[in-house]
Design a protein around this nucleic acid. Structure first.
Length: 607
RNA sequence: GCCUUAGUAGCUCAGUGGUAGAGCGCUGCCUUGGUAAGGCAGAGGUCGGGGGUUCAAAUCCCCCCUAAGGCUCCA
C-alpha cells in the first residue's frame, strides 16, 4: 500500500462521474468538506492482497502516529490510484479501504472516506510545515514461513501385478531406470546440452527468437510442416474417439473468481498482462473448455462429452535457467482433451480408452515411453484392481507414486515420458482424473433423477506438447546416431523423396518424374544444382531424406530407377510404380500435407 | 531465479592492447559429372549492446542483453 499524508487547512471534494468500478454511495458522500484534517491519499497494491489484515493494521498504526504528531482534528481517507503502478483488484481495494476506515473509527478517531471509483474534483490547502507532506509504503509483515511438513509420497514399481520397492527392483531397461532414478531424485546426470537443440537448428526446423521472450521459438517451413502434421495427427486421433474440437481465447480475466483460484494454484509461472483489466495468458486449455462447459446445458445423456483444443499457444513463465530447446518452453502448443464424465465408473472407462490412445502415439512416432501412475492413497485403496488392470495394458514395469493426500486437482493420473539422450525424462502424454474443477467452474449436468450434479473431468494430452514430441524424435535420432542413420518417421519427413539430376540435361526429366510422384501425395523435390552427384547425395543425407533417386542418362533411356533407402542403407532398382507403392505403404494411414518449399532446391532460401 | 562459463562473417571457430582471420555456406566463372565435399575468384564484420581506462580496445574494467552448464523447480 502506498499512502501520501497531507496535513491540510481544508479539503473539499465533489464527485463528477462514475467509472466502471465505482462503489455505490449514499447521496451525502457525493461531496465533502473537512477542516484541519490529515488527508491520507491511498493506493492499494497487488501485494496487499496476500495479507490484507496485516496491511490494514500497519497502515492504521502509521496514520495514528502521524495524526498525533501533527495534531490534526480528523482523518480523511482518499482513494488515489496514481500512487502505484501495481494496483490490486478494485474489489480488494474497496474492502481494504473500508477496513481502514472502520479500524480507525474503532480507535475513536473522527474518520471520513472519499468514494472509490469516481472522478472527483478536489481542492486542498496544505499547511506546508515540515511534517505536512509525508509519503509511506506500507507492507504486510513478513508472514512466518509455514512450517507445514510436506508429507512424502511412497514409491513402488508395479511389475506383473506385484508391488516392488524400487531399491529391490532389477532393472533391465536403461530408460525405465533413468525415469525411476529421476523421480526419486537419485539420477546422476551426465550433464551437457541435450542434442536436440543443435539438431533443431541444423535441420532448419526451429530456432531461438532473441527478439521475443526467452522460450519462444521461430519455426522455419520444415519445422512448421512437421508441427502441422502432428496437429493433424492428434486431431484425427481424438475426433475418431468422439472428441469435439473447439477454440477458445488465450487470455482470461483474473476478476473471474474460478479462474483466479485455479490460476493461483499455478503460482508464479503465469504470464500476466495488464492494461485496463488484469489478464493472464492461459497455460493450458482448461479455462476455455470449462467456460464452454459451464455455460452449456448438459444432461446425463450427453456424457461422456469430449472437448478438444490444440493450444497454439500455451504460456508458462518457466524459470529462465530451466528453459531449454524444445524441451521446456515459455510458449508451447499442447493438445488438450477434456472429458466430462457422469461418475467415477464412466471416468475410469474413459481413462482406459485414453491410456490406449496415448500408447498408440508411442507406436506411431516410434518413440518409447516409460510410465508413471500417480494416485492418492485413498484412490489406490478404493480402485486397486482397476489400477492393476490399467498397468497391465501398458505391459511393462510401471512406477507408482502414492500421495498421502490430494495436493492438486487430480486424484489419479498416468504420465508417459520419453527418455532423452542424457537419460532425462521428457514428460509427454498424460491422463488425469480431476475431481475439483467441476464444482469450481460451476459445471453441472442434469442427472437421470432430475438433480444437478458436478461431473468428474478427465484431462488428457495424448501426445504431450507438439514441441516435446519433436524433441523426443530428435533425441531418439541422436541416441541412434552411430548405430544407424538417424531419421524422422517417413510420414513426418519434410522431404520424403529427393531426386538428384546428374547433369543439367537431366533436370527436365527429373521434374517430370517428381510431378508424377507429387501427384500421388508424396513430398518430393529435385536437386537441380550444378554440383557433383557425390555432393548432392551427401547433402540429401544431411537432411535425413528417406528416399533418394538419381536420374542420369541410364534413367532417361530405361524405365527403372535406383533408389537409396536410408532406413536400410540399401540401393534398390525399381519401377516408378513399385517405388510409389512402397512409399505409400510406409506412410499408410498417417496424415499428409504437401511440401511447402520450392520443388527445385536451387530456388530455396537458406534459412 | 542463483552460481559458473561463453558471445568475433549466415554457421563452426582462431585471434590477449597496435591493419579483422580460416573452413563451411553464399554469389560468379570453369567443370556436365553416376552415389557422403570437383576447381578458381568474389562479396560478406558497429568483434552481443552501452559506458569507462588508454595515444590506441575484439583484447583491460563496469553495467545490461542472449546462450550454455549446474542448482532448484515443473498441477
Amino acid at each position: 500500500m502506498r499512502i501520501l499524508l497531507i496535513h491540510a487547512d481544508y479539503l473539499k471534494y465533489k464527485t463528477r462521474e462514475k467509472t466502471r468500478i465505482a462503489e455505490d454511495i449514499p447521496e451525502k458522500m457525493r461531496k465533502g468538506s473537512f477542516k484541519e484534517s490529515l488527508v491520507v491519499f491511498t493506493a492499494i497494491e497487488k501485494e496487499d492482497e496476500t495479507n490484507p489484515t496485516s496491511v490494514v493494521e500497519n497502515a492504521v498504526d502509521e496514520i495514528k502516529r502521524i495524526f498525533t504528531k501533527v495534531n490534526a482534528k480528523e482523518i480523511v481517507i482518499y482513494p488515489y490510484a496514481h500512487l502505484s503502478s501495481s494496483l490490486s483488484s478494485p474489489e480488494m481495494a474497496k474492502k481494504i479501504l473500508k477496513k481502514m476506515e472502520t479500524a480507525l473509527k474503532n480507535e475513536g478517531f473522527k474518520v471520513s472516506r472519499a468514494p472509490f471509483g469516481w472522478y472527483k474534483a478536489f481542492e486542498i490547502s496544505c499547511k506546508g510545515h515540515p511534517l505536512s507532506e509525508l509519503s509511506r509504503t506500507i507492507r504486510a509483515e513478513a508472514k512466518p514461513e509455514k512450517a507445514v511438513e510436506e508429507l512424502e509420497s511412497k514409491w513402488f514399481i508395479i511389475d506383473k501385478g506385484k508391488l516392488i520397492n524400487p531399491q529391490d527392483f532389477e532393472f533391465e531397461n536403461r530408460d525405465f531406470k533413468s525415469l525411476v532414478d529421476y523421480e526419486l531424485g537419485t539420477l546422476e546426470s551426465r550433464g551437457g546440452e541435450p542434442p536436440h537443440v543443435k539438431l533443431m537448428k541444423e535441420k532448419k526446423l526451429a530456432d531461438y527468437e532473441p527478439s521475443a521472450d526467452v522460450g519462444h521459438l521461430r519455426w522455419y517451413p520444415k519445422g512448421r510442416l512437421i508441427r502441422d502434421l502432428l496437429a493433424d495427427y492428434v486431431y484425427i486421433l481424438v475426433t475418431s474417439q468422439g472428441a469435439m474440437p473447439v477454440e477458445t481465447p488465450i487470455m482470461y480475466d483474473l476478476e473471474d473468481e474460478a479462474i483466479r483460484v485455479h490460476a493461483e494454484k499455478f503460482g508464479e509461472r503465469q504470464y500476466r498482462m495488464k492494461n485496463k483489466k488484469e489478464l493472464m495468458l492461459r497455460y493450458a486449455c482448461c479455462f476455455g473448455a470449462f467456460r464452454i462447459l459451464s455455460d452449456s446445458f448438459l444432461t446425463w445423456k450427453n456424457l461422456p462429452a469430449r472437448v478438444y483444443e490444440l493450444s497454439t499457444y500455451s504460456f508458462r513463465l518457466e524459470k529462465k535457467g530451466e528453459v531449454v530447446g524444445l524441451k521446456r518452453l515459455r510458449g508451447f502448443t499442447m493438445p488438450d482433451l477434456h472429458t466430462v464424465c457422469r461418475d467415477m465408473g464412466q471416468a475410469l472407462e474413459e481413462f482406459e480408452k485414453q491410456v490406449e490412445i496415448c500408447l498408440k502415439t508411442s507406436k506411431d512416432f516410434n518413440v518409447n515411453y516409460e510410465v508413471i501412475f500417480r494416485a492418492t492413497e485413498d484412490f489406490y485403496e478404493d480402485y486397486k484392481d482397476w489400477i492393476h488392470s490399467i498397468v497391465n495394458k501398458v505391459n511393462k514395469p510401471t512406477l507408482l507414486e502414492l500421495l498421502p493426500e490430494r495436493k492438486h486437482y487430480w486424484i489419479a493420473k498416468m504420465d508417459f515420458a520419453a527418455i532423452d539422450y542424457l537419460g532425462r525424462p521428457i514428460e509427454n502424454p498424460t491422463v488425469q482424473i480431476d475431481v475439483e474443477s467441476g464444482k469450481r467452474f460451476d459445471i453441472t449436468f442434469l442427472e437421470e433423477d432430475g438433480t444437478d450434479r458436478n461431473p468428474i473431468i478427465l484431462h488428457c494430452s495424448p501426445t504431450g506438447s507438439i514441441e516435446r514430441v519433436i524433441c523426443s524424435l530428435l533425441e531418439k535420432a541422436a541416441i541412434e546416431m552411430g548405430e544407424k542413420p538417424p531419421m524422422f518417421p517417413v510420414w513426418l519427413s519434410p522431404t520424403q523423396v529427393r531426386i538428384i539430376a546428374v547433369a543439367e540435361r537431366h533436370v527436365d526429366y527429373s521434374l517430370k518424374i517428381a510431378e508424377k510422384i507429387k501427384s500421388e501425395g508424396i513430398r518430393v523435390d529435385v536437386d537441380d544444382r550444378a554440383e557433383s552427384v557425390g555432393k548432392k547425395i551427401r547433402d540429401a543425407a544431411k537432411e535425413w531424406i528417406p528416399y533418394i533417386i538419381v536420374i542420369g542418362d541410364r534413367e532417361l533411356e530405361g524405365a527403372e530407377f535406383t533408389v537409396n533407402i536410408r532406413k536400410t542403407g540399401a540401393k534398390k532398382i525399381m519401377k516408378l510404380g513399385d517405388f510409389i507403392s512402397m512409399v505409400k505403404n510406409e506412410v499408410n494411414g498417417m496424415p499428409f500435407r504437401p511440401l511447402t518449399l520450392p520443388m527445385r532446391i536451387s530456388e530455396r532460401i537458406n534459412f
